[in-house]
Amino acid sequence: MDETGKELVLALYDYQEKSPREVTMKKGDILTLLNSTNKDWWKVEVKITVNGKTYERQGFVPAAYVKKL
């Protein structure tokens, strides 16, 4: 869990989004888990830094590609 009590997951593999509802992740990324009720796709939040500014983006990743921490 992070400092706000949200559950975290670890990306076990790289994943490139294939639709606007998904998010890209790299092996080793730590993501915030938002919803894991679907056994195949989990909703996560990723933080992306571009030119020194951090953005948060929500989307789905394959559940088999992440592990709860």
Rank of each mutant, 00 (worst) to 15 (best):
M1C: 14
M1I: 11
M1S: 14
D2S: 11
E3R: 04
E3V: 10
E3W: 05
T4V: 12
T4L: 13
T4Y: 15
T4P: 13
T4R: 08
G5E: 14
G5Y: 11
G5M: 12
G5V: 14
K6Q: 12
K6W: 09
K6Y: 15
E7R: 12
L8F: 15
L8E: 07
V9F: 04
V9D: 00
V9L: 10
L10V: 15
L10Y: 10
A11E: 01
A11Q: 01
A11P: 01
L12F: 03
L12A: 03
L12I: 09
L12D: 01
L12K: 05
Y13H: 10
Y13P: 00
Y13V: 11
Y13R: 14
Y13D: 07
Y13L: 09
D14K: 02
D14R: 03
D14M: 03
D14E: 05
D14H: 05
Y15W: 11
Y15L: 01
Y15E: 01
Q16G: 06
Q16P: 06
Q16D: 14
Q16M: 13
E17H: 08
E17P: 14
E17M: 12
K18I: 06
K18M: 12
K18N: 10
S19E: 07
S19L: 08
S19C: 08
S19M: 07
S19T: 12
P20T: 09
P20W: 07
P20M: 10
P20C: 09
P20D: 13
P20K: 10
P20R: 09
R21V: 10
R21Q: 12
R21T: 12
R21K: 11
R21P: 04
E22R: 04
E22N: 04
E22F: 05
E22Y: 04
E22A: 05
V23M: 07
V23N: 02
V23K: 01
V23P: 01
V23A: 05
V23Y: 03
T24K: 04
T24C: 06
T24M: 04
T24Q: 04
T24A: 06
M25S: 00
M25T: 03
M25V: 10
M25H: 00
M25C: 05
M25L: 08
K26C: 09
K26P: 00
K26S: 08
K27G: 05
K27A: 13
K27E: 06
K27P: 02
K27T: 06
K27R: 11
G28N: 06
G28L: 02
G28D: 05
D29Q: 12
D29I: 02
I30F: 05
I30S: 02
L31Y: 08
L31N: 01
L31C: 07
T32P: 15
T32I: 14
T32L: 15
L33A: 02
L33M: 03
L33T: 01
L33I: 03
L34M: 07
L34I: 14
L34P: 00
L34H: 04
N35M: 07
N35F: 05
S36P: 05
S36C: 09
S36Y: 07
S36W: 08
S36H: 10
T37Q: 13
T37A: 11
T37I: 08
K39G: 09
K39M: 10
K39A: 13
K39W: 07
K39C: 09
D40Y: 15
D40M: 14
D40G: 08
W41G: 00
W41E: 04
W41L: 03
W42E: 01
W42A: 04
K43Q: 13
K43I: 14
K43W: 13
K43S: 07
V44D: 00
V44P: 00
V44N: 00
V44L: 03
V44H: 00
E45T: 08
E45W: 06
V46K: 15
V46G: 08
V46W: 05
V46F: 07
V46D: 03
K47D: 08
K47N: 10
K47R: 14
I48W: 11
I48Q: 08
I48K: 08
I48F: 11
T49R: 10
T49N: 11
V50I: 13
V50P: 03
V50L: 13
N51Q: 11
N51W: 07
N51C: 12
N51S: 09
N51R: 08
G52T: 06
G52Y: 06
K53V: 14
K53T: 13
K53L: 14
K53Y: 15
T54C: 10
T54Q: 11
T54P: 10
T54A: 12
T54K: 08
Y55S: 09
Y55L: 12
Y55I: 14
Y55D: 06
E56D: 13
E56P: 14
E56V: 15
R57W: 03
R57Y: 05
R57V: 07
R57S: 05
R57I: 06
Q58K: 08
Q58V: 10
Q58L: 05
Q58R: 11
G59N: 00
G59H: 01
G59V: 03
G59P: 00
G59D: 00
G59M: 04
F60S: 03
F60W: 15
F60G: 01
V61H: 00
V61D: 00
V61L: 02
V61Y: 00
V61F: 00
P62Y: 02
P62G: 01
P62T: 01
A63I: 03
A63M: 04
A63C: 06
A63L: 01
A64D: 09
A64H: 13
A64K: 15
A64Q: 11
Y65W: 06
Y65S: 08
Y65T: 06
Y65L: 12
Y65N: 05
Y65R: 05
Y65H: 05
V66Q: 01
V66D: 00
V66N: 00
V66E: 00
V66G: 01
K67P: 00
K67G: 07
K67C: 14
K67T: 15
K67W: 08
K67I: 14
K68N: 06
K68W: 05
K68P: 09
K68D: 04
L69S: 03
L69H: 04
L69T: 05
